[in-house]
Amino acid sequence: MTRERPEDAAARLLGARATGSAPLGGATRVELDDGGTVVVKQGAPTVAEAAGLRWLADAGGPDVARVLAARDGWLVVEHVPTGPPEPAAAERFGVALARMHAAGAPGFGAPPPGGPAGAWIGAAPMRAVAAEGGWASWYAADRIRPYVRAARDAGTFTASDVAVVDEVCARIADLAGPDEPPARLHGDLWSGNVLWSAGRVVLIDPAAHGGHRETDLAMLDLFGLPHLDRVRAAYAEAAPLADGHAARVPLHQLFPLLVHVVLFGGGYAGQTLAAARAALRAA
């Protein structure tokens, strides 16, 4: 049986004819005969991604790439043309991000409606099941310990490395800061998933779930974002953060850093352990 090509899947799902295609990271950009351009993905993670995009779009927050079709293991979303980062767009993004977070979630770890319990962040599996307890215990159990175990089992973390992160988990109730309700998170909010387009910001590739809003903000800071100071200032004016939030950034960065250790190996181990030690010092 011939495997369906991305351009053929897009044509079938959208009722259009594909006129060209090109690789786009782990996806395919497809041009259509009506002049439109779409991005096509295939595989198990597309179910969670489609549900996440729709959930975030319903929050009244930042613009999100529109889902055009999601069926038969395929996901087709609008292609977002990019342009230069603009300060005014950054400020609007900060306010919109606060609105998205405030839309909330049924619980910490909760998936979007229709999203699977076995979700993904990039190419790494991610559990998406609403927790009964608060953020600190859920974050330790579902967002730190599974990836530490994977790094240990792969030989990337030594026993002493594991001990450092285990101490964070043991003390997390003291490190977590004031209680907050579950926020509606993008979940993989690094700069590559923030597209600047004609005076606006458009979000792509979420790992959406209910979590702590400081996690999205910490991920923006992890690999840098143009005009991040303006994003943060606008966010804080719209929805002030709890005291001590700056000291908690390393704690919230532990999850994405551990994912990078699992996906890409020991090159991220040092940065991850530095974040764990910084989180402990902030207590």
Rank of each mutant, 00 (worst) to 15 (best):
L251I: 13
Y268I: 06
A279I: 07
A154I: 02
A150P: 01
S197Y: 08
A136N: 05
E49Y: 11
E132N: 12
G35E: 10
P106G: 08
G187Y: 00
W190R: 10
T2Y: 08
V262T: 12
A130M: 00
D243Q: 12
A170Q: 15
R12V: 01
P178G: 13
D8A: 13
K41I: 14
G60I: 11
G26R: 05
A69E: 06
G134W: 08
T215S: 15
L195E: 15
V129R: 02
V77P: 06
A239P: 11
H227Y: 00
E7Y: 10
Q271P: 00
G114W: 07
A128L: 03
A282H: 08
F157P: 00
W55S: 01
E214F: 15
G60E: 11
D63H: 15
P226K: 09
D58Q: 15
T46M: 06
A236Y: 06
A48I: 03
Y268K: 07
G210Y: 04
D142W: 03
P84K: 15
P116D: 07
P116K: 07
A98Q: 12
M1D: 02
V168P: 14
G61R: 09
W55F: 02
E4I: 12
V40K: 08
A70L: 11
R248M: 13
V38A: 09
T272E: 04
A27L: 00
V168C: 14
E167I: 01
